[in-house]
Design a protein around this nucleic acid. Structure first.
Lengths: 228, 228
DNA sequence: CAATACAACGGTACTCAGTACCGTTGGGAG
DNA sequence: CTCCCAACGGTACTGAGTACCGTTGTATTG
């Protein structure tokens, strides 16, 4: 019954020692000793010293990969902005553990780098998914996918960090709002010949002139094909 | 005259050995031996084994910091999107060295992570700069700054990687275009009463009708204050 | 020219993360 | 009871990074 307790004892001992002496000042031997197990056992449960703090980033990544694979949304961006919620929910589920990890990563550069590298893997996954979804090998489409993935991850990190710092009580709805903002950033692509689309396209701008003054150039733009 | 040659010989030896045997299969002793220096000398010139490949990320970061500190642009976003060009120019200046590094980071996970961590420091700098520039402690403004910084970095990485892969011959103008795209993503905040801003504002949309058909409703929108 | 100061170097020894391998133990399943 | 197997502990090793010490070559100053 208490067989997999070693893994938990190791994590507890690690966090406790990290709090007491700091991360660099704690050796793996220290952790193993406090947990009452051998050094070998530590590396059987965790691949590295950092791994004690980030145990299930891999699992979460594949979880999201599956979610994306089985998702059917109107656009790739929306699918991704939906899937990324799983990450937030996972952290919330971890509760206090996630917050202890945050205070650690705030102090120790090595851990922060490690966390960032993990987040980059999500971003890469998102970028590739959106690019595949668009199916447009154009350079501008590629850039667009890159921007979308970056925006989703940035917005997610923003809300997540706010929750980790205790600055919000309802991170889920904040995440909804943030993702709406992100989706709103990227208007539907214009010009790609879909069915029945010989209509008018207006681009957004602001001006100090009134509508009548700029109407001629507006008309020239609309009638003159792709304008600058 | 040939006194700081040790540093260069070390870098050459390192890159050569990394190409021959791979990164993990090369020890610091190997590098020092081929460079004809002692092991201690290696660590005098480079803080770590990874540092041989990323020698001047710190210098570049402070360079950009200075650039931002002494820059006067219309918005924080534009200042940042201007400053980030320094990074691209630096890589272009490195030339072939940057490309050899890219092939390495593409293969070795540890190096990729390291590179990502460096980029994250730029992004953090940008985020803080934009947030300071806006001077708006609101949560939405904070999110906006985060999105802007992420977009600038993503666009930069996009163009940089294209150049590293040899997919573009004119990365500078491509960077200009990408940054224009990024700036265009973020419209000026509306509603904040600036001086003399009683002009016309058009929102973006697409329609199947031609311009004359929708002109009346357009006019109604413009004249009728804030329309939905 | 001689004494001194300094910077770069080489060597040794150490700590610690991570890997490989081997033997031991403690239960279930046949 | 015996076989099996999973989890464990111990030992030994490699390699990165640090600390310290002694040496050498070079520039500076009296």
């Amino acid at each position: 019954m208490s067989k997999p307790a070693a893994r938990i004892r190791l994590a507890d001992a690690a966090f406790a020692l990290f709090d007491e002496r700091g991360y660099e000042q704690t050796t793996v031997d220290d952790i193993a000793e406090r947990a009452g197990v051998g050094r070998t056992t530590f590396f059987r449960h965790y691949r590295s010293k950092e791994d004690v703090i980030f145990p299930d980033h891999d699992r979460l990544l594949t979880l999201i990969k599956d979610r994306l694979a089985t998702s059917s949304h109107s656009t790739g961006l929306i699918a991704v902005s939906d899937a990324v919620r799983l990450v937030l929910l996972h952290y919330i589920d971890e509760g206090d553990l996630a917050r202890r990890r945050y205070t650690l990563t705030s102090k120790v550069a090595v851990l922060r780098d490690r966390e960032i590298a993990s987040v980059a893997r999500y971003q890469r996954l998102f970028r590739e998914f959106i690019a595949d979804w668009m199916g447009d090998p154009t350079e501008s489409a590629s850039l667009r996918a890159e921007l979308m993935a970056a925006a989703v991850v940035a917005a997610h990190n923003h809300v997540l960090r706010r929750w980790l710092r205790g600055e919000t009580s309802d991170p889920v709805v904040e995440m909804d709002e943030a993702m709406r903002d992100v989706v709103a950033l990227f208007p539907a692509p214009s010009g790609s010949g879909e069915a029945g689309d010989a209509g008018t396209t207006l681009v957004a701008f602001r001006t100090g002139q009134d509508l009548d003054t700029l109407l001629p150039s507006l008309r020239r733009l609309v009638e003159g094909g792709t304008g600058r």
